[in-house]
Amino acid sequence: MSDSRVLITTYPAAFLHRGGGELELVDLMVNLRQLGVRADLYGPNAQPLNKYDVVLHYSVIPTGMEFVREVKAAGKKLVLMPSLWWSKEPTQAEKNSAAEFFRLADVVVFKSKTEFDNVNAYVPVEQSKVAFCRWGADSCFEELISGDLFKQTYKLDDYLLSVGIIEERKNQLAAIHALRDSKIPLVFVGDYRDREYYEACVKAAPGHFKFLPYLAPKSEILRSALRGCKAFIEVSLEPAGFSAFEAALARVPMVLTAGPWTQEHFGNELVHLVDPMSTASIQKGVQAALNTPVSPQLQRSIHNQYLMPQCLEPLVRVLRVRS
């Protein structure tokens, strides 16, 4: 095996609105570098394509197809990380596009078995191309930072917290409807892509709920927000984002959507599982989170399995090029 230089790419419009996936790319580059990989993120500071041995392309958004074809035409090893989850059956066009990405890729990396099962049920992936690599969170979220900074900055006492881009598939509107009568405010931290959905959330929320702008990843204010909340809530229609790993490391009660992804990563007993389409289920899950001490086993489990950069070691092996 020889060392390889890696270029990380994604679809062109990705960074117009920063959500979890976009933050993952920046974090991925930093953590791969910590593991000794010479990795760059595509942009004006990257080298020309001919200087790289491997291209790691993130997502199967169709607008990235032209770029991927250029990579293959240049003879580079293409590692594809689909970061894909279909909550309902995709259209034939979506299936055809994903299948073409999979055909072009030398390796297709899935972050979990449940992600693979979800995708493979609609578009079979050639087994010889499949690799698995866990994702994770930074150890800085384990630091016992005070929640007072966030509370004082935004004039809060007790609060529930939801972190992530506000969009329909993240299902924030359902959480608002379920918790609108709660005396404890629900605080949303995140940007939005769909202004109409964002405005619907703001309109439906009672006056004591808060919508805060994007907070820098790993920042002291974000870590303080997690440490100070009474419960972390993510009742999305797709797998939770990596902020759920961060909340687990911060030792806060968690309310997550029930399903195979949550079971694979958090188990059935360490977090409070809810039906994201049921107001009663969300209410019951939040109430249980407020009344149940956090199991120390949750933090230990995430630390042992999903801590950056160690959890990326399988990906490092995938990115190597044979000499």
Rank of each mutant, 00 (worst) to 15 (best):
D3G: 06
I8Y: 07
T9G: 14
Y11Q: 05
Y11I: 06
P12L: 05
A13G: 15
L16M: 15
G21A: 10
G21D: 11
L28H: 15
R33W: 12
R33C: 11
R38N: 08
R38C: 12
L41E: 01
L41H: 09
Y42W: 09
P48M: 03
K51Y: 06
Y58R: 12
E70R: 15
A73S: 15
A74D: 11
V79S: 03
W85R: 13
W86K: 09
T91S: 13
T91E: 04
E94N: 13
A99R: 01
F102I: 10
K111M: 12
E115N: 09
F116R: 05
E126N: 13
Q127C: 12
K129I: 06
G136F: 01
C140Y: 01
D148I: 06
D148Y: 07
L149V: 13
K151V: 02
T153P: 10
L161A: 09
L161S: 03
L161M: 00
G164S: 03
G164Q: 02
Q172R: 00
A174N: 15
A175D: 11
I176Q: 10
L179F: 14
R180C: 15
S182T: 15
G190P: 14
D191F: 08
D191S: 06
Y192K: 04
R193N: 08
D194T: 02
R195D: 02
Y198K: 04
E199V: 12
A204T: 02
A205H: 06
F209A: 11
K218A: 08
E220H: 03
R227N: 05
G228C: 14
F232N: 02
I233E: 03
V235M: 00
G241Y: 02
F242I: 15
A244L: 08
F245L: 03
E246C: 01
E246Y: 03
A248M: 05
A248C: 01
V252D: 00
P253K: 12
L256R: 03
T257V: 13
T257R: 09
W261T: 05
N268S: 15
E269L: 11
L273R: 00
M277L: 14
S278L: 11
S281R: 12
K284Q: 14
A288S: 15
A289G: 09
N291L: 15
L298E: 01
R300F: 00
S301L: 10
N304Q: 11
Y306H: 10
L315C: 06
V316M: 12
V321E: 09
